[in-house]
Each structure stands twice: as structure tokens, then as C-alpha cells.
Design a binder for these strands. Structure first.
Length: 871
RNA sequence: GCGGGCGUGGCGAAAUGGUAGACGCAAGGGACUUAAAAUCCCUCGGGCGCUGUCCCGUGCGGGUUCGAGUCCCGCCGCCCGCACCA
């Protein structure tokens, strides 16, 4: 029978309208069913959606639709992470207002997302640049200020001396400003900070209560927080060399056990002692200046060649008053970590070793690895950081490093230096407070005022929101708020006198640190409605890119705690389940020096070799490596083009099918075509069988064929549910291929004369199949659902229930190994005992041959899995 | 530099420590067709004295185990994050 091909272009918009008319995805907090909050990381409105979005939102949609089919009350919202630099860059380049640019992009992207057929509750949509949103964010800022969780201090920024502006790390290229090309300097500004370190221990401990997070993300956060137990240790400076008024230098160390291996001390370039030492030393001043020229990015600082300069100051060894060590200024010591000063033990720290080798400092090993000889052990180019036995450490020789740590700490804690204990045990964190000040226009204004008489004063709550002015110009670099003629002028809420508004805006990470809570009550006058937030939080399943593993997720965990402590909700952890999906990558093509977009390329295969031709010119071009889709390499595929030619379901199916979701997926034209063939194949299977089986009723007696059809359907239903719950979408897809292969074999050519039992089994199986694919290909599922004559919408249908009796066979076929290699099978009853399996195995011909009359050395039977005969 | 990950056929990949390569893509052969497309069927890791439950094979080198792609140790290669990109 000839069947019409499935036409997604006509079908998809129709079903999208049907869902919208039924308000199927608009969520009510008091609706029946267990709550399930599924969320994908909201997009930055860059202009158009890209394939990464398609992948991310498809995964979330599968989860949302599956959970809804399971009878849960699902919350699945969407919004826009809408503040940020690209809007200002566009304003500068194209003379378009950041607000207009952003809202236009949102309109485009909303349309694109709608064409994907996502089961989103659009009634909750907002953008972080909406006044309604940042108004409530300003309320939260004032809450944090009241709690002492927001404060001001000096901090360094990248300064472009030509453009007279602050640069983001990504705007610094090889130490120069991206626009001006000027050498970047680091400059100190007074900036706003959130006290995330107040929650360091809680954030660390909380990770243990997140079993549904990937272990690697928890590990990364643990390392980022970087809790370490160590010692604050004061070193006396020799009187002759110490700057005036300075008697000692405090270092933080996690290795007091290696104190006898010390060969120098070093301070950061902006340490007060460095500045003091540089007072009458121009070459040291010059060196400090040079260190400041490295950008503020940690990666730049730590990959720079280790350099330092002597201060001329000497320190006295805490355990030997006759031992003097030089104090250096070094570029690898960070003011932000510990006390900004270290003692260097080159033998047991790689950075210290690199430094010591460069400056000819002694390298004395004090920890001897197990199995090494004290006399012959020496350090080459690699420091030894492992455990062992103390050597060259006088009275501590022969003890373990951990014993020595405690002994040294105890002794120095009870030693007096200038009227105070010389050392103090301390827990230190690598985590730093969160600097939120940005010297930019397109962000949430920080609601404080600077009053001549009262100083820094929070804006009165009744005066919120502090709105961004619309009349701004981007004709010169820098922050337009600073040069606005009137916006800054305000009244001090405390004394009523004249005051100036803060012109810094907030880091966009603040916006994304609580949007998921705002979704629970997106129109509330207050930041949250606590009872509603408590009804929905935490998010059961959060899905997004691995690149957010640390910053966004850690800030969100902090912000949720801070909001909890300000009474906005009860939860501490925002995301109970986290999934990090891989990127979408694509082959690159280049024509000489020029990158060529895939849409302009035709691939042919000649004698097994793939060749690329440029469509516009007909010239042969080179096929390059497979890389993350990026505008600069032009290896992007526009979701609109794919949806227009194949439909959203094909794009969704391909995104789910080809790779495990946490790994990168390679977008290929052939893969998409394969996915589309399956769409058509499924439609053919259902639409051709439908007229024959539409009204089929079973006679209650299943023959062998009917039973096998039913087995396939029920097993697949069980497997697909398990796979979706574990987010193993690629495996669910493979199962559905198998099911369609099996059903095609049994149902193709089925006619009206077929036995009733087969027609009934076929009808049951197809009805199940449609519901199993519905979360992944929702439009096709509706079309099939209709063809089968089922009631209502497939999107509202419940997940098929599984008959456990159909999940297993009566017999089991176990592989039989001889010495670990598979040599055959043994068939036993499903519930056969171990002894019965052993007997059956020893009866097998090839086992008898292998044993040659001898008893087996060993017989391993793993119930339900395998038998291994050891001869 | 520090931190995290990944590595299996021509390709994307499967495999609670238990039959390596399910499923898909590409390729080759065949059927249908005047022809093409679509569809359907078969083959598809390598090797061999190629109809054998034969030998080899999961980046490389060792180890643990009755049994290792999976666990442990040491390498190699590629990718991601590093606090002002989002």
C-alpha cells in the first residue's frame, strides 16, 4: 500500500499550535502529581540559537515529557541570560542600543526555540535585563549588604591605558588590549564583593550530599574551594636588613614538616614588604612594575617563567637562630592566596624547585621516598611531593612527614616571637571572595550611593528599582554611566544631601545565580514567594555544559544559601541532579586561508577517500579537523536550516542518537539523513499497519508470534524508561531502532486476514512504540497517535505500563568459557540452581574434550551471566 | 603551571569485572525499476593452508584476577576550566 511520506513542515506547526491551545505545558503549583523541576541552562541571547542549544534543550525536553507521561507535575521554564558584554560590543560596532539588540535577539531565538516543539511553560519567561527582574536582584543585593555578605575592598583589574578602560580577561590578548593593542597594566580599584568564603566549609560539605552530580564536577569544586590545613608562621627578619618598623614576615604553609628544606622566602609583588623593600631600590621597583604588567588571569601568571628578585632582606629560620634565608619578590606568589608570602622548599614543591634552579638556591631533600637511599637520594628536575621518611631534619630524622608536621606546629605554637606565639594552625581556602563589580553599562546597577557626608549608603528600598538610563552613547570606550550628564546625581537616602550613584554594575553571574528560583514565581513583587519556592526547589534535573562546572554552579550554590539565610526559601542546594552535556562539533573546511561554511561544501567519496568541493566556486578545498562549532571557523550549521529541510523531530532524534550525551557529538549530514530515514520508516510502519489493526481486539490467547511481539514491546518500554531516567538517550534510541526492526519484520504486509491475536499484539505494540518515542519526537508521535485512532494528544498520554511476566524467557543461554575464552553456550532453565548449571556444563561435548577426562581445576558459575571452566 | 576529563572497526558508538563491536552511519554486492530515487535482502575489525566455535585485537608498557575495554602503577596523545566570555 502506498503511503504519503510524513511531512514535518506541515505537521509540526499544527501540533505546536494544538499543545499551545490546550495550555498543556503551563504549570500550576497545586496541580496533582509529584513535583518535578527540570531545567536547562538558559541561553545568552547572542542572535540565533546554535546546535549546542538544540542538543541541550532536546535532552531537557525528553526528561520533561517523560516525567509528565509518568504523571508528575513538571516545571520546565525558559528565560534569557540577557546582560553582558556582547550587547555593548554590538552597540559600539553597529550603533544599536544594547537593549534593542538584546530584545531583538530574544524575539528571534524565542521563535527558533518554539519551532523545536519544546514542552516549555512560556508563561514564566523573563529576561535578566527586564527591569522587573533586576529590580528584585537589587533587593537581594540590599539583603546581602544587610547580612554583611556584600562589602567593598580594593582589587586588581586589567587596565587599558590607551582606551582608559577596564578589560575583561578575554579582551586581553598576549598582554595587550584587544582594541588598542596597548600593553595592559593591572590597576587597583575599590570594588564590590560577595562573601562566598563565609560559606566555604558549607559549600564543601554540601558536595557530599549531591550524589546525582557527576563525580568529576564535585571533584573540580572541591579542588576549587581548596581547603587546606596548615600553619601561619612568622619569620623574624634580621634587624640590619628589615625595613623600618617591620620585624617579621608571616607566611602560610601546608608543609611545616619540610622546614629544614627551606632555602628562601618569597612575597608577592604587591605585598607590603615588597613595596617597603623597593623604596630605595629602583631595580626592584622596576621589577614590581613588570610583574604588574602580567594580566590578572591566573593561567597567565602561572604559565609565565618563574622570576624573582632579591629584596636584600634576610629572615631567621624558626628552628635555627643562626640560619639566614634570603627574601625574594617572586612573580608566582599570589597576594590573593594565604598571606601573599611563602617559604620555598625546592626539593618538595615544583614551583619552588623551578625557582631555585633558576636562581642557584640550595635544594635539600628532607623527605626520603620509600626504597630510596638517604646517601644517594637527590632531586633532579622534578620535586618529590610524596610521602616517606624525614632526612636532613635533625631531631625529626626517621619520623614521618605527618608526625613532623604536628611536632613542628606544636613547638612553634608554643614558641614566643616578639610577645606572641610564632605560629598558629590555620585552615585556609583557595576560594576567594566573589568580585561582582563591572565597569560597564549593560548590567544590573548596584543600588548604592556615595554621599559626601554619609559615605557609602544603600539606596532606600522604596526607591528601587535603580533603572539603567536609556540615553547613553557608545562612541567612546569606557562606562557610559560614568559620563552620563544627570543619571549619577541623586539624593542621599540617609541625610537628604546630594549624592552620586554607584556606576558599577553587577557581574552577569549574579543574574544567573538565582533565575532558577525566580522561575517558581516569575511575577512576584518580592524576589520569591517563599512557599512557592519551597514547593518547587530544588531543581530535580539541571542540564548544561561542562564549562559551567565551577563558577556558575558554585555561585548558584552560594547564592541559594545566602537567599536562604535572608528568608527567601528553605533549600540550601539549588540542583539535586546535574548533567553536563558535551559539545556539538563539526568538520572544518578551508579554501586556502579562508574558512568555508558547511552549507557551501559538497563532499564526495572517490576510491574510499573523502573530498570536498566548494559549491559557490566549484574549487577543491581542504577538509580540516573536527572542532567545536564556532563563527570564526565557520563550521556552524544553522538549526533553522535543518528544521526547514528535515523538521524538528529529525534534528532532535539525531542529537540524541549519535553519541553518549556527556560526550561531544559530531554533526554530520549523513547522520541527519539517517535520522530522517528513521522518521519516515516509523511513519510508514504505523500508517501502513494502522488500517488493519485499528480496531483489533485480542481473543485472550497469544500464539508464539503474538507473544514475541508483545515481549519486544514490553521489554523496550522497560529499557527505554530505564535509559531515560539515567539520561542514556543514545541507548534508548538504539533500543527503539531494534524495536522498529523487529516490528517491521512481523507487521509488514500484515493484512485483514491475519490472526486476531497478532493484530491485537501489533496494535498494543505500536501504541506503546508511539508513546516511547513521544518524548524524543513529539510531533511525529502525535501524527502516529492520530493514525492509530487513539484518544486525545500523545503529549498528554501516559507512559505505557509494563507486564513483568513478558520481561524474561523461560530458558537462559549462558556463555561457557574455557580458561576465560568463550567456547560455547549452555542452555538452562531460568531458575536453574548453580549445581544444575555445573552439571549441564560438564555434559557439553566441547567441555568434555577440553577436560580430556580430568576433573576441572575450577568451575566458576556466575548466576545469570556466565560459566568459566578452568582446566 | 594547576585542576578535570577522554582514547574501542573506515566513522559515531555498545558492553553491573563475565560472549568485545548491540544500534546507527559509510562502503560493497544483490532484488525491484526502462532508468533513477525510495524501499527490501546479504556482507562488513585484522590475519591464516579462509566451511575453524582457529589466531590476533579496546592508545602504549607492566600488574591484579578463574576472567580486564572496565580495576591498579607508569607513559603517550587529544580536549575542557582557571575567578572580568557566557
Amino acid at each position: 500500500m502506498a503511503t504519503e511520506r510524513y511531512n514535518p513542515r506541515a505537521s509540526e506547526p499544527r501540533w505546536q499550535a494544538a499543545w499551545a491551545d490546550a495550555k498543556l505545558f503551563e504549570t500550576k503549583t497545586d496541580a496533582p502529581g509529584e513535583k518535578y523541576y527540570v531545567l536547562e541552562m538558559f541561553p545568552y541571547p547572542s542572535g540565533r540559537i546554535h546546535m549546542g542549544h538544540v542538543r541541550n534543550y532536546t535532552m531537557g525536553d525528553v526528561v520533561a515529557r517523560y516525567r509528565r507521561a509518568r504523571g508528575m507535575n513538571v516545571l520546565h521554564p525558559m528565560g534569557w541570560d540577557a546582560f553582558g558584554m556582547p550587547a555593548e560590543n554590538a552597540a559600539m560596532q553597529n550603533k544599536v542600543h544594547p537593549r534593542d539588540w538584546t530584545y531583538q535577539n530574544i524575539a528571534t531565538m524565542r521563535g527558533q526555540l518554539k519551532s523545536m516543539g519544546l514542552s516549555l511553560d512560556w508563561s514564566r519567561e523573563f529576561a535578566t535585563c527586564d527591569v522587573d527582574y533586576y529590580h528584585r536582584q537589587q533587593m537581594l543585593f540590599l539583603d546581602l549588604l544587610d547580612k554583611g555578605l556584600a562589602y567593598r575592598r580594593k582589587s586588581k583589574v586589567n587596565w587599558d591605558p590607551v582606551d582608559q578602560t577596564v578589560l575583561a580577561n578575554e579582551q586581553v590578548i598576549d598582554g595587550r588590549g584587544w582594541r588598542s593593542g596597548a600593553l595592559v597594566e593591572s590597576r587597583e580599584l575599590t570594588q564590590w564583593f560577595f562573601k562566598i568564603t563565609a560559606y566555604a566549609d558549607d559549600l564543601l560539605a554540601g558536595l557530599d550530599a549531591l550524589p546525582q552530580w557527576p563525580e568529576k564536577v564535585r571533584l573540580m569544586q572541591r579542588n576549587w574551594i581548596g581547603r587546606s590545613e596548615g600553619l601561619l608562621l612568622r619569620w623574624a627578619l634580621t634587624e640590619e636588613t628589615a625595613p623600618e618598623g617591620v620585624k617579621d614576615l608571616t607566611v602560610f604553609t601546608t608543609r611545616p614538616d619540610t622546614l629544614f628544606g627551606a632555602s628562601f622566602l618569597a612575597v608577592a609583588a604587591d605585598h607590603p614588604l615588597a613595596e617597603a623593600a623597593a623604596r630605595d631600590k629602583p631595580e626592584l621597583t622596576a621589577f614590581i612594575e613588570e610583574c604588574r604588567r602580567t594580566g590578572t588571569a591566573t593561567a597567565d601568571i602561572e604559565t609565565a617563567e618563574k622570576r624573582g628578585m632579591e629584596t636584600g632582606i634576610f629572615a631567621v629560620h624558626p628552628l635555627d637562630p643562626t640560619w639566614r634565608l634570603p627574601v625574594y619578590v617572586a612573580n608566582f606568589v599570589l597576594m590573593e592566596y594565604g598571606t601573599g608570602a611563602i617559604f620555598g622548599c625546592p626539593a618538595h614543591d615544583q614551583r619552588d624547585l623551578d625557582f631555585a634552579r633558576a636562581y642557584g638556591l640550595p635544594v635539600t631533600p628532607v623527605v626520603l621516598p620509600e626504597g630510596a637511599e638517604a646517601e644517594s637520594f637527590s632531586i633532579g628536575t622534578e620535586a618529590y611531593v610524596g610521602d616517606g621518611t624525614m632526612i636532613n631534619s635533625r631531631e625529626f630524622d626517621g619520623r614521618s612527614p605527618s608526625e613532623t608536621f604536628d611536632a613542628v606546629a606544636d613547638r612553634l605554637e608554643s614558641t614566643d616571637l616578639f610577645g606572641a606565639p610564632q605560629a598558629k594552625r590555620q585552615v585556609n581556602y583557595r576560594l576567594r571572595d566573589w568580585g561582582i563589580s563591572r565597569q560597564r553599562y549593560w548590567g544590573c546597577p548596584i543600588p548604592v550611593l556615595h554621599c559626601e557626608t554619609c559615605g557609602v549608603v544603600p539606596e532606600a528600598r522604596e526607591n528601587l528599582p535603580v533603572k539603567l538610563p536609556d540615553d547613553v552613547a557608545f562612541d567612546k570606550p569606557g562606562n557610559p554611566l560614568d559620563r552620563h550628564p544627570t543619571w549619577r546625581n541623586a539624593k542621599c537616602p540617609k541625610c537628604g544631601g546630594p549624592a552620586l550613584r554607584e556606576t558599577d554594575t553587577m557581574d552577569t553571574f549574579v543574574d544567573s545565580s538565582w533565575y532558577f528560583i525566580r522561575f517558581t514565581a516569575p511575577h512576584a513583587e518580592t524576589p520569591t514567594k517563599p512557599d512557592v519556592a519551597n514547593a518547587w526547589m530544588p531543581v530535580e534535573q539541571y542540564i548544561g555544559g561542562i564549562e559551567h562546572a565551577i563558577l556558575h554552579l558554585l555561585y548558584s550554590r552560594f547564592f541559594t544559601r545566602a537567599m536562604r539565610d535572608c528568608g527567601h526559601l528553605a533549600a540550601s542546594e539549588p540542583f539535586q541532579g546535574l548533567f553536563t552535556q558535551g559539545m556539538v562539533v563539526h568538520e572544518t573546511y578551508r579554501d586556502g586561508r579562508e574558512w568555508v561554511a558547511p552549507a557551501d561544501v559538497a563532499i564526495t567519496e572517490v576510491e574510499g577517500e573523502r573530498r570536498a568541493k566548494r559549491l559557490s566556486t566549484g574549487s577543491d578545498i581542504a577538509i580540516g579537523s573536527i572542532e567545536k562549532m564556532s563563527k570564526s571557523k565557520k563550521n556552524v550549521v544553522d538549526p533553522d536550516d535543518i528544521i526547514a529541510s528535515y523538521g524538528a523531530d529529525t534534528a532532535r532524534w539525531f542529537m540524541l542518537s549519535d553519541s553518549p550525551p556527556d560526550r561531544d557529538v559530531i554533526w554530520t549530514e549523513a547522520g541527519v539523513e539517517g535520522a530522517h530515514r528513521f522518521v519516515q520508516r516509523l511513519w510508514r510502519l504505523v500508517s501502513e499497519a494502522a488500517p488493519v489493526i485499528a480496531n483489533a481486539h485480542g481473543n485472550g490467547v497469544d500464539d508464539e508470534v503474538a507473544t514475541s511481539i508483545r515481549r519486544v514491546a514490553h521489554r523496550t518500554a522497560q529499557g527505554v524508561a530505564d535509559d531515560i531516567e539515567r539520561l542514556a538517550f543514545n541507548k534508548a534510541v538504539a533500543r527503539l531502532y531494534e524495536m522498529v526492526n523487529a516490528l517491521s519484520a512481523s507487521l509488514n504486509g500484515l493484512n485483514a486476514d491475519a490472526p486476531a491475536s497478532i493484530k491485537a499484539a501489533g496494535r498494543e505494540a505500536l501504541s506503546m512504540l508511539v508513546r516511547l518515542v513521544a518524548p524524543m519526537m513529539p510531533h511525529l508521535a502525535e501524527e502516529c497517535w492520530q493514525a492509530l485512532g487513539e484518544e486525545g494528544l500523545a503529549a498528554a498520554a501516559s507512559w505505557p505500563s509494563v507486564d513483568p511476566a513478558l520481561l524474561s524467557d523461560d530458558t537462559l543461554t549462558l556463555p561457557v568459557q574455557i580458561n576465560g575464552k568463550k567456547r560455547g553456550d549452555v542452555v538452562v532453565a531460568k531458575d536453574a540452581s548453580k549445581a544444575e548449571v555445573e552439571t549441564a556444563t560438564l555434559e557439553l561435548d566441547f567441555v568434555k574434550t577440553a577436560l580430556a577426562g580430568q576433573p576441572p581445576k575450577r568451575l566458576v558459575v556466575v548466576p545469570g551471566r556466565i560459566v568459566n571452566v578452568v582446566v
